[in-house]
């Protein structure tokens, strides 16, 4: 029996699919990563330490205990244990509640997909991103000036991108925007009373209201 800790060389870069999943139409939608059947405990082995169980809510409604037994089989071999829940019924609240609870109590991460395509894409992505750094979801700075300016100014509620350009061109630089009077702000086209007040308060009210 092949164990995930000793994969064959050719299967190293592929998703290992349990024989149980034979006939799952989901497999059709895994196109961006190679996959191969293998004798593995979870439904899908997505990497050194991550695996996934596939569960359709319709199936869960018929066999409410299935998920629990499958999770128990997994033991502690994987750091990331995903339950990939295919939402294929209309009335989801109750079954989803049960699945959420089971997943949470047994250290599994629940992901929901609303179509086979979406479920397939989760599997692919987790495989493809196996060693990807988190840069794209971390705070990052677009280094061009306008987007940085936009980022800062749009933190003030109601201020939109057009306003940013307006403010920029009317005042010339951020420090001048920050020191503008209410009247000057109000003279910019498109900056109404409400935005003027919010901008002015943001810049002129002290950081700490009470010292």
């Amino acid at each position: 029996q092949a164990s995930p800790s000793a994969p064959t060389p050719q299967s190293k870069n592929a998703i290992l699919v349990s024989h149980r999943q034979k006939g799952n139409p989901l497999l059709k939608h895994i196109r961006n990563a190679r996959w191969t059947f293998a004798d593995v405990v979870p439904d899908y082995v997505l990497g050194q330490s991550s695996c996934a169980l596939y569960l359709s809510i319709r199936y869960h409604l018929l066999h409410p205990d299935y998920l629990y037994y499958r999770i128990r089989e997994l033991q502690k071999n994987f750091r990331l244990r995903i339950i990939l829940c295919h939402i294929d019924v209309e009335d989801v609240v109750k079954p989803l509640h049960e699945i959420t609870r089971t997943a949470l109590l047994h250290d599994c991460t629940l992901l929901c997909g609303w179509s086979l395509e979406e479920c397939g894409r989760y599997l692919e992505t987790i495989k493809v991103y196996e060693n990807k750094p988190a840069d794209s979801i971390r705070e990052h700075m677009d280094n061009d000036y306008l987007s940085r300016l936009t980022r800062a100014l749009t933190s003030v509620r109601h201020v939109n991108k057009t306003d940013v350009v307006t403010l920029g061109t009317s005042f010339g630089s951020l420090s001048q925007i920050m020191n503008a009077s209410m009247e000057e702000l109000a003279r910019c086209p498109g900056i109404g009373e409400r935005k003027v007040k919010r901008l002015h308060d943001t810049f002129h009210e002290p950081f700490k209201r009470v010292s």
């Binding site: 990331l80 244990r81 959420t100 991460t109 629940l110 992901l111 992505t125 991103y129 196996e130 988190a134």
Partner: peptide
Amino acid sequence: SLLVLHFPRLRMVW
């Protein structure tokens, strides 16, 4: 996907 890969302990509630 990236988020759960980087935080395997993170539990998701939908």
